[in-house]
């Protein structure tokens, strides 16, 4: 089964460049503005879009993304509305891959089978679920693969060579390398450690490897993108969004542009990278 993710990475490989992957929270700061923002991302240079599914207790996220989730929940966001957001985006973009990222409980409560059907029909291509390690593959990973969705696994600095095969076994789409031990928005990735880690993962898999956590600037994005098949930026975009809000946390006329401009700058950084040899 070929997904939009597979197609996109194949295209990029032909062009000889790495992917720029953006992360923003669904419904932040409100559902309507969120859709506008997501729609603006491909035009600004995003190659793959990750959309966070808001959750009250995001235990792998730092303060920025925690706050983004709470803003979205306060604005009435639900998992159902997150799928509507994707559907809305798909009306005029059928090529940019969409990956939903978040925690398992809202999906479990929605109902795994129903969720997979609805996500697929809304135009979702892949899932990243932080609290589902390979030990829990029966829960969602295997059903998702069957439903034709990529299940993208996180590999981390603590995933050693012994464990990597288990982590990669049911992974598809791409591998997301978490460049630091820590939560989102905390430390900055060290590019030499990242390049070593990516090389190590590539010894075990043919899948593209994208790197995230700790990338905030076009310079770091370029640096990391030169060692990997993609660079993921989340917290910096979420912060740009937040800084554009009014005192009550509502969207202003600047909000969509603030995110689009930073996206464009980061995308330029990524496009400036010399992609590492396969």
């Amino acid at each position: 089964m070929t997904t939009r993710i597979d197609t996109r990475f194949a295209e990029l490989a032909k062009q000889g460049r790495s992917a720029f992957v953006t992360f923003l929270m669904a419904g932040d700061p409100d559902p309507a503005t969120s859709l506008e923002i997501i729609k603006a991302l491909p035009k600004s240079g995003a190659d793959v879009i990750e959309i966070g599914m808001p959750f009250t207790d995001p235990m792998a996220d730092g303060p920025s993304i925690q706050a983004a989730g709470l803003r979205a929940l306060k604005a009435g966001m639900t998992l159902k509305k997150t799928l509507e957001l994707v559907r809305g985006f798909r009306k005029d973009d059928n090529a940019t891959p969409i990956v939903l990222m978040g925690y398992y409980n809202p999906i479990y409560i929605y109902g795994v089978d129903k969720f997979l059907v609805d996500a697929k029909s809304a135009g979702v291509d892949g899932l990243i679920i932080v609290d589902l390690p390979p030990e829990e593959d029966n829960e969602l990973c295997l059903p998702a693969m069957k439903a034709g969705l990529n299940f993208i696994r996180l590999a981390t600095p603590t995933t050693d060579d012994k464990r990597l095969p288990a982590v990669l076994a049911n992974t598809s789409g791409f591998v997301y390398y978490v460049s630091i031990t820590g939560i989102t928005g905390a430390a900055t990735a060290d590019s030499s450690a990242v390049s070593e880690a990516v090389a190590r993962i590539k010894r075990h898999t043919k899948l593209p490897v994208c790197v995230g956590f700790g990338i905030r600037t076009p310079e770091t994005a370029r640096d990391i993108a030169s060692h990997a098949n993609g660079a993921v930026v989340g917290t910096a975009l979420v912060d740009a969004l937040r800084n554009s809000l009014d005192a009550e946390g509502r969207a202003t006329g600047k909000t969509v542009n603030a995110v689009a401009e930073l996206t464009a700058a980061l995308a330029q950084g990524v496009r400036g990278a010399q992609q590492a040899a396969e």
Binding site: E136, T156, T158
Partner: peptide
């Protein structure tokens, strides 16, 4: 051996923590 009491329990944690 996977930490389940019936359907309850399990190991729903981030990959970073799994090895530990």
């Amino acid at each position: 051996d996977r930490g389940h009491f019936g359907i309850f329990g399990g190991r729903f944690v981030a990959e970073t923590l799994m090895p530990l």
